[in-house]
Design a protein around this nucleic acid. Structure first.
Length: 456
RNA sequence: UCCCGCUUAGCUCAGUUGGUUAGAGCAUCGGACUGUUAAUCCGGGGGUCCUCAGUUCAAAUCUGAGAGCGGGAGCCA
């Protein structure tokens, strides 16, 4: 654990390894302060932990600084690390000197030491980072990112930086954001209309067929007018691609990924998950239940079996069920939340419901695709074994009235040294929501972009 | 894009059947007090009741339109 720059010590470090009577320098912002004639207290946070450090002030320091040590003020406290005589903490700082580095006008500061709605905090996204909830959310977001890279790196996957700018709309995964430059009527900068990527998959497949196991992890853009708590116009996606692999291998990787990364993230951010259990989730056993799910195999059924389950459930659904129907949100939630009570892989969807690059099953009616459905969130992963046979892939383009020309390089992968391979795309923010219990994707993205909103 | 709901103090909200000067908690400001833990106690200030139009003797309250926000659906990750 770092000792900081040498001129200060992170609060997390202070609380774990500082020794009694050691001279310390703590820096941070005031979380709360309490003043009285004989002795005063101030709590500082610096983002390194869910906890604060208590600084004890003398009457002279109180007199001089009371009006300035308000919530949000930036402070440097120098003093001695001493045993606390009170119950709330083992140690505290007996301050020798306190400097206010940044004042706050308390009558105007919008962050208060009280519950505040997430809706309101979204309107002050530049300041919401200072609240307990968002401190925990973004520490976990950082840890989850780190554990994702760790998982793949330890398994010899290469991280591929697939392009953000694209001139083909990949797989038709969704509506694209077009790129404009210069004056209207200028020739296209890239020689063809360009857009922000909707997926790195087709690009990363090129690397898979040279490095065997690869992944992308980066921002993705969808211009769909989606107004839900689970959709954003800019989000991060994890897309591994593995060779010499079929759908079973893809599913095994996906399950291993979620379980290993999930457990490691909870272990790395134990304090933050305690906070979510206490303050965000309705259920105090929320994280323990997540850990239990991460310890046992996920359910797996085919699309056809899923339809049989829905038909036999006797439940009234708003949308039609039965073979050939497309699975709606209510059906997915029934399967994950009520029937399996946990994550479930659904496989072998009808060909017509899925993308052109998914491998056609024997019989030609279904494809080797899978969605992973989880309680509360719905679809968190979409994956498939890819069509590795050139003639079948060409036929799949043809039946969808898609031109071959833009995909010449993608088809080359099947012309030269083709290989059974597959992969999946996992919505990073959806996994974060599933783990933390946060219910709105806007509250797990630093500065969320949704229809009508790209503020800050 | 569709359906539903909400909008009252800095924040979170209450506001009866339309009726006189629109309330509470927290925050804030002033004071007191305490090894305090979102401290406690006393006092003060703070309002375009989202906007516009209408009904009415009278509108926070009823009607219409608009805006913003939220929930759900579709699309998907």
């Amino acid at each position: 654990m770092t000792r900081g720059t040498g001129r200060r010590t992170p609060i997390r470090t202070l609380l774990t390894i500082a020794k009694a009577d050691e001279a310390v320098v703590a820096t941070g912002w005031v979380k709360t302060s309490r003043f009285s004639k004989n002795v005063s207290f101030m709590h500082l946070y610096d983002g390194s932990t869910t906890k604060t450090v208590q600084v004890v002030l003398t009457p002279e320091q109180t007199e001089a600084l009371q009006s300035r040590l308000v919530v949000g003020a930036c402070v440097r406290a120098t003093g001695k690390w001493v045993v606390s005589p009170a119950k709330g903490q083992a140690f505290e700082i007996a301050a020798d000197s306190i400097e206010v580095l940044g004042d706050v006008d308390a009558s105007a500061y919008p962050i208060q030491k009280k519950d505040t709605s997430f809706e309101y905090l979204r309107t002050i996204a530049h300041l919401r980072t200072r609240t307990n909830t968002f401190q925990s959310v973004f520490r976990v977001r950082n840890a989850l990112s780190w554990q994702i890279h760790k998982f793949f790196q330890e398994r010899q996957f290469l991280w591929i930086h697939t392009p953000i700018i694209s001139t083909n709309d990949a797989e038709g995964a969704g509506e694209c954001f077009g790129l404009a430059h210069g004056k209207p009527g200028d020739p296209p900068f890239f020689g063809a209309p360009a857009m922000l990527t909707v997926s790195g998959q087709l690009n990363v497949e090129c690397f898979a067929e040279a490095f065997t196991d690869v992944y992308t992890f980066g921002p993705t853009f969808r211009a769909e007018n989606s107004n839900t708590a689970r959709h954003a116009a800019e989000f991060w996606m994890i897309e591994p691609e593995i060779c010499f692999a079929d759908l079973d291998d893809v599913i095994a990787l996906a399950q291993d990924f979620i379980q290993v990364v999930g457990r490691a993230t909870i272990a790395q951010c134990a304090e933050d998950f305690e906070f979510f259990d206490a303050r965000i989730a309705q259920d105090k056993e929320f994280t323990n239940k997540t850990l239990a799910i991460l310890d046992r195999p996920f359910a797996r059924i085919t699309y056809a079996e899923a339809q049989d389950i829905l038909l036999k459930s006797g439940k009234k659904f708003e949308f039609p069920i039965g073979h050939g129907t497309s699975m709606q949100s209510e059906h997915e939630r029934f399967l994950a939340e009520e029937y399996f009570k946990g994550p479930v892989f659904v496989t072998n969807y009808p060909r017509v419901q899925k993308a052109f690059y998914m491998r056609l099953d024997d019989g030609g009616e279904t494809v080797s695709a899978t969605d992973l459905l989880v309680p509360r969130i719905g679809e968190i992963i979409g994956g498939s074994q890819r069509e590795d046979r050139l003639d079948v892939l060409q036929e799949q383009l043809r039946v969808r009235n898609m031109p071959e020309a833009p995909y010449w390089w993608y088809l080359d992968l099947r012309r030269y040294g083709t290989v059974p391979h597959g992969g999946f795309g996992l919505g990073f923010e959806r996994m974060l929501m599933w783990m933390t219990g946060m219910t709105n994707i806007r509250d797990v993205i630093p500065f969320p972009r949704t229809p009508g909103h790209a503020d800050f």
